[in-house]
Computed example of a mutant assay.
Amino acid sequence: MLANKISQQLGRPTQSLLGWIVKKFLTRHNQVMEVNAVRLCGIQPDDTVLEVGFGPGLGLEAAASHLTDPRGKLFGVDYSEFMYKLASERVQGLITSGKATLHQASVDAMPLSDSSVDKVFHCNCYYFWPDLRAGAAEMHRVMKPGALMVVTLRTEQVAWAASKNLIPVENWRPESYMDALRATGFTDIQMEGNMDKNITFQAIFATASK
Score class of each variant (00 low, 15 high):
6 I>R: 10
8 Q>D: 13
8 Q>E: 15
10 L>C: 06
11 G>E: 04
13 P>N: 13
16 S>A: 06
16 S>I: 05
17 L>G: 09
17 L>Y: 11
18 L>N: 12
20 W>A: 15
22 V>R: 12
24 K>Q: 14
24 K>I: 07
25 F>Y: 11
25 F>P: 00
26 L>R: 12
27 T>S: 14
27 T>R: 15
28 R>A: 13
28 R>W: 11
29 H>R: 15
30 N>K: 09
30 N>G: 11
30 N>Y: 11
31 Q>C: 06
32 V>W: 08
34 E>K: 06
34 E>F: 05
35 V>Q: 15
37 A>C: 10
37 A>I: 06
39 R>I: 10
40 L>I: 07
41 C>S: 14
43 I>N: 10
47 D>Y: 06
53 G>Q: 14
53 G>Y: 07
56 P>D: 13
57 G>E: 10
61 E>Q: 13
61 E>H: 05
66 H>Q: 15
67 L>M: 09
69 D>Y: 03
70 P>F: 03
71 R>I: 00
72 G>A: 11
74 L>K: 13
77 V>L: 08
78 D>S: 09
78 D>N: 10
79 Y>W: 02
81 E>W: 09
81 E>R: 15
83 M>Y: 09
84 Y>H: 12
87 A>Y: 01
87 A>W: 03
90 R>N: 02
94 L>H: 07
95 I>D: 02
96 T>H: 12
99 K>V: 04
100 A>Y: 01
100 A>V: 04
104 Q>Y: 03
105 A>Y: 01
107 V>N: 01
110 M>S: 00
111 P>H: 05
114 D>F: 04
118 D>G: 02
120 V>S: 05
126 Y>R: 07
126 Y>F: 12
128 F>H: 04
130 P>N: 01
130 P>E: 01
130 P>Q: 03
132 L>F: 00
135 G>W: 01
135 G>P: 02
136 A>K: 08
138 E>A: 07
140 H>G: 08
142 V>T: 07
144 K>S: 02
144 K>V: 03
145 P>D: 12
146 G>P: 07
146 G>E: 12
148 L>N: 08
148 L>C: 08
152 T>C: 14
153 L>S: 10
154 R>E: 04
155 T>V: 11
156 E>F: 01
157 Q>C: 00
157 Q>A: 05
159 A>I: 04
160 W>K: 13
160 W>F: 10
166 L>E: 08
169 V>T: 11
170 E>W: 01
171 N>T: 08
173 R>N: 05
173 R>C: 01
175 E>H: 05
178 M>R: 09
178 M>L: 04
180 A>F: 03
180 A>R: 04
183 A>I: 00
184 T>F: 00
188 D>L: 03
188 D>T: 04
192 E>Y: 00
192 E>R: 11
192 E>A: 02
195 M>C: 11
195 M>G: 02
197 K>A: 12
198 N>T: 10
198 N>G: 08
198 N>F: 09
199 I>M: 15
200 T>Q: 14
203 A>E: 03
203 A>H: 06
206 A>E: 02
207 T>L: 11
207 T>S: 14
207 T>H: 12
210 K>M: 10
210 K>W: 07
